[in-house]
């Protein structure tokens, strides 16, 4: 057993999965935003930005 491991319960494991998905979304969305802005596509940029804000709200809710 490693020195400082915390074994996750089922709920914690689901939380880790949700957080991992959120992390990937939060890393990828800004790149979509970058290329939308670069190609002067305001509408997709707005949608991506809204999704990013929602993901941040979800992070806060998830705790």
């Amino acid at each position: 057993m490693p020195v400082i491991e915390k074994l996750p319960s089922g709920k914690q494991k689901k939380n880790v999965d949700a957080r991992a998905a959120l992390l990937i979304i939060q890393i990828l969305l800004p790149f979509g935003l970058y290329f939308s802005l670069r190609w002067a596509n305001q509408a997709p940029a707005m949608v991506i930005a809204a999704l990013f804000v929602l993901s941040m709200v979800f992070v806060t809710w998830l705790g």
Binding site: Q26, P30, F31, L33, Y34, L37, A45, A49
Partner: peptide
């Protein structure tokens, strides 16, 4: 501005 700030943050 907010978009650029967030992309740089990433």
């Amino acid at each position: 501005l907010l978009a650029v700030a967030q992309i740089k943050a990433i």
